[in-house]
Amino acid sequence: MYYNVTINIPVYTDANSTFPKPVGENYDYWFPLLKFFLTKSDTIEIHCWNEEIDTINEIQSLYNSKMEMVREENLTIFKLIKSIITIDYLLNNNVNINGELKWFTINLEKFMKPMFHSGHWGTEFFIPNVTKEDIVFIKSIIPRQAILHEFL
């Protein structure tokens, strides 16, 4: 039997910021979750706000023409085939100079089916079609304050 999972990580914001930071101020849960689901995916979609120019330029310089890029009114969306470069970038170059996760959204797919969604800078997740064993792993990774909901 397969389940769908949503996860909400408690967040706070600094006085002069609207950026949601996870309680505990780290993304220790995010890296193993992403790594686990990267192994099950073949395509990666990255969403950035258009004003995040440094991150957009960084992604463009890494991939040149080997990506699909769509610029919407406020959002830039990159679609990439999973590669060693992409995995290394996501797992090892993922926070900005303020210690914040670089990407608003990361979506992972396999054969064009959703596998993993990380939203709101790694504080909200939707993970479809997981097993009970996957859920045990997920629960072992996420902060104890996180809210996890599983459903059919």
Rank of each mutant, 00 (worst) to 15 (best):
G24Y: 10
L91E: 06
I84G: 01
C48F: 01
K82E: 03
K139N: 11
I84P: 03
F37V: 04
Q60D: 15
W30Q: 10
E51N: 13
E133V: 07
N74Q: 10
S61Y: 01
I56K: 02
W121C: 05
T43I: 12
F31T: 14
N74F: 12
N26S: 14
T86G: 14
T123Y: 04
V23I: 13
K139H: 06
N57W: 00
E25C: 00
S41M: 05
K21Q: 11
E150N: 14
D88S: 12
F111S: 12
F36I: 02
F125P: 07
W49L: 12
L62C: 06
L75S: 03
T123R: 05
L38E: 04
G99P: 07
Y63C: 08
R144Y: 09
I127S: 07
N96I: 10
N74G: 01
V95S: 03
I53E: 06
T43G: 07
F116A: 11
E72T: 06
P128H: 08
W49V: 01
G99V: 11
I87L: 01
K21Y: 15
Y12R: 08
N8D: 15
T39N: 15
K110C: 05
L108P: 11
I135D: 08
I106H: 07
P128D: 09
E25F: 00
P114Q: 05
I87P: 07
R144Q: 15
K66V: 10
M67T: 05
T86R: 00
T43F: 01
L75N: 05
T105Q: 10
F137L: 12
I77K: 09
P114K: 15
V23C: 07
Y29Q: 11
S17M: 11
I141A: 03
L148N: 04
T43P: 03
I87F: 02
N57P: 00
I81P: 00
G122E: 11
N4H: 15
N96Q: 08
I97F: 06
Y63L: 10
Y63I: 10
S61W: 02
S140F: 01
Y27M: 05
F19C: 02
E133P: 01
F36A: 03
T86E: 09
H149Q: 11
I85T: 12
E109T: 13
G119H: 11
L34H: 05
E124W: 08
L75M: 13
K132I: 14
T123A: 09
F31W: 06
P114Y: 12
W30E: 10
I46Y: 05
I53H: 00
S140G: 06
N57F: 04
S61L: 02
I59P: 08
W49T: 08
P10Q: 04
E100G: 03
V136M: 03
D134C: 07
V70D: 09
H47K: 10
T55V: 15
E58K: 03
I141E: 11
N57Y: 06
L91H: 01
A146S: 15
W103D: 08
E25I: 00
V5I: 13
L34P: 05
K132V: 13
F111L: 06
K35Y: 08
E72M: 12
L62K: 05
P22Y: 03
F151C: 07
N8L: 12
L90G: 07
H149I: 14
P114G: 09
